[in-house]
Design a protein around this nucleic acid. Structure first.
Length: 355
DNA sequence: AATTCGGGGTA
DNA sequence: TACCCAGAATT
């Protein structure tokens, strides 16, 4: 399989040191209080690219609302998105619910315990498959995420670029050789805890590390140089005029975004891609786009919102209309108090203070 | 292999 | 600012 990097690596002692540390020092997290595969699953989806501290309140609310696959399966998607509001990467929520519905209809409500069926579910990729199989079902499967690549790149002095997709397979091979077959659940979680609390991206606290004596990078003093990761490219800014359109009944215009792409199926205040349209054609564009005749008011503020790949530069304007309806099926007129029932991206939540 | 998907915390 | 985070789907 892999070469002989592990030749001088004491696997048994490493496992013992790591697991002992984990048993003494593991974090008390809501999804660690029991071993319900559904709860492990939800936690793993929420934790994708998201810090533990951010996830905890979302996870607790979600479990109160959807304690089993059956409640989530029968829920309305807009309600699920509302529960996900602010957490980001909203396709996770839509995929999770679709997958849960498949578990109910195809697997009798039981989360699959094999790689083929589990990994075939929407939103369940290689990492999440391994995480559920190991944590919930105690199978010796690798679950390679950013933590694991960082920890192992230092332990074994692996200098492959972790930004490259194929590099993850390399780490999966190493984990398969090093993982505890006695307690794979604790092993994988221990690596994650280690990466989150000690073997951190910057300034790792090697003096507290339970496996310091196993670490090749530490022995050479190069732990700060690893892992190697090529830079992501910068986000492109896009300018919009965002419109708080009010009618004489104090209702506001909000719009449901499309079912694919960025912030899919969330709601927002109408946005005009102002670079393409030009301020002088704004009212005309709004009428052709939404069938709403408006009069532009004054600017209320501006805000910058950074995504992974783009930056929204929003100029927020008031506007007025005499209408209370339109043919555009994306659009509704709604009063201020009812807006809170709809899922909005954070950028548009920030605009609500101007209502 | 590269890009698209959110949002917040950190140094 | 720049980087990172218990990544997956799409192109």
């Amino acid at each position: 399989m892999t070469n002989n990097i592990l030749q001088h690596f004491n696997i048994d002692q490493f496992q013992a040191d790591l697991l002992h540390w984990y048993n003494v020092s593991k974090r008390d997290l809501p999804w660690r209080r029991e071993r319900d595969p559904y709860k492990i699953w939800v936690s793993e989806i929420m934790l994708q690219q998201t810090k533990v501290d951010t996830v905890i309140p979302y996870f607790n609310r979600f479990m109160e609302k959807y304690p089993t696959v059956y409640e989530l399966a029968k829920a309305d998607q807009q309600e699920v998105l509302k529960a996900w509001e602010g957490l980001g990467y909203y396709s996770r929520a839509r995929n999770l619910q679709n997958a849960v519905r498949e578990v109910v209809s195809e697997y009798g409500g039981v989360v699959p315990s094999n790689r083929k069926e589990l990994g075939g579910l929407k939103g369940v990729g290689p990492y999440t498959t391994g995480a559920i199989l190991s944590i919930a079902y105690n199978q010796p499967e690798p679950a390679v995420d950013g933590n694991v690549m960082r920890v192992f790149s230092r332990l074994l002095k692996i200098e492959a670029d972790i930004a490259m997709p194929r590099t993850k397979k390399l780490f999966e091979d190493y984990v398969r050789q090093v993982i505890s077959t006695e307690d794979p659940s604790s092993f994988n979680q221990a690596i994650m805890d280690l990466g989150a609390t000690i073997c951190t991206p910057k300034s790792p606290t090697c003096s507290f590390c339970p496996v310091q004596e196993h670490c090749l990078a530490f022995s050479e003093g190069i732990q700060e140089e690893l892992p190697i990761k090529t830079k992501a490219k910068k986000q492109k800014p896009i300018a919009y005029v965002a419109l708080l359109i009010k009618n004489d009944q104090d209702e506001y215009v909000i719009e449901k975004r499309g079912e694919n792409g960025l912030l899919a199926n969330l709601w927002q205040f109408p946005m005009v891609p102002i670079e393409e349209i030009g301020m002088e054609h704004l009212e005309t564009w709004v009428y052709s786009e939404y069938g709403i005749r408006i009069q532009l008011g004054e600017q209320k503020g501006k805000l910058k919102h950074v995504f992974s790949h783009i930056i929204w530069q929003l100029e927020i304007f008031e506007a007025y209309t005499l209408q209370a309806e339109t043919d555009d099926e994306r659009v509704i007129f709604i009063d201020k108090e009812a807006i809170g029932k709809y899922p909005f991206p954070v950028s548009h939540q920030k605009m609500m203070k101007y209502l």
